[in-house]
């Protein structure tokens, strides 16, 4: 079940989005997320949606994966849109007791679901096309100015790299421990929520012990490979802003101004 979560999974590829500089991608992601929340009418929402679609189609990742990442949050989308339908103001189209549906409620629901879908799609696009190392690397470089405030940027990035590296390993181990405990007669499926959570204790304790052991081993392995922190370290893949990155930025700026203009000249719907 845990394996179905596609968010945060990297898909190797050779498309234009894969090759873009991860720093540019992160900044553009932040810009797009802000933008998605700045769209107040259908035209600007459509512009963003179109832009997101173009990026996804260019991304050299099968659309199936994007659908898969949406599948996980379909419940959230449904709940929020249903709630929003009933929160509208204005003249009701349909009323039952205190429940009433208005035009603005429907608009709201559409906006919220489209926004969530776009958010998931665009952030999945980042994680699908950027290797975790590139991602942490880019974050390290983007956060470098924070060193002024004595924030240990390199250490944070290193921790993220290691955490990402060990997620699949620990998942595998959880599976193994669960099977081992089941083989010893542990019952993890029956009972209510509290009972189920309690049943996880014999899984979590060995998992923690082993995680500490792994950490100890890993620290030793890193020392063997001359790790001395961030100072004096070089990187195999140095990041350069390429021509294609400039195009990406221009594309984003065009979309950005487009949305802002739409917002200014077309009356807001919500």
């Amino acid at each position: 079940m845990i394996r179905d979560i596609t968010l945060g999974q990297y898909v190797p590829g050779n498309g234009i989005v894969h090759k873009a500089d991860p720093r540019v991608k992160i900044i553009l992601l932040i810009a797009f997320i802000t933008l998605i929340f700045c769209a107040f009418n259908f035209v600007s929402l459509a512009v963003i949606a179109a832009a997101v679609m173009i990026i996804i189609l260019l991304s050299d990742v099968s659309l199936k994966l994007y659908f898969k990442s949406l599948k996980v949050i379909i419940v959230i989308i449904l709940i929020t849109s249903i709630l929003n339908i009933f929160y509208g103001t204005g003249t009701p189209i349909w009323q039952f007791g205190i429940l009433k549906i208005t035009m603005s409620g429907i608009y709201r629901a559409v906006f919220v679901s489209v926004r969530i879908v776009l958010l998931i799609l665009i952030s999945s696009c980042l994680t699908f096309t950027t290797s975790p190392t590139d991602l942490t690397d880019a974050l390290e470089r983007l956060m470098k100015p924070l060193k002024v405030f004595h924030i240990k940027v390199h250490e944070i990035a290193m921790m993220m790299t290691i955490a990402l590296r060990f997620v699949p390993t620990l998942l595998e181990e959880t599976d193994k421990i669960m099977s081992a405990q089941k083989a010893r007669g542990a019952d993890m499926e029956s009972g209510g929520l509290i009972k189920k959570v309690k049943a996880m204790t014999p899984v979590l304790i060995p998992l923690f012990v082993s995680a500490f052991r792994r950490a100890y081993d890993l620290a030793m392995a890193m020392e063997c490979r001359c790790y001395q922190g961030g100072d004096g370290r070089t990187r195999m893949k140095s990041l350069h802003i390429k021509k294609s990155d400039v195009f990406c930025i221009i594309f984003a700026v065009v979309i950005l101004t487009g949305v802002v203009l739409c917002d200014i000249f077309i009356a807001p719907i919500i």
Partner: peptide, 16 residues
């Protein structure tokens, strides 16, 4: 293994 991609893991030593 430190990194999530083989070649980047191999690069870890020389990078250090």
């Amino acid at each position: 293994l430190v990194a999530s991609i083989i070649e980047e893991d191999v690069a870890f030593g020389p990078e250090n």
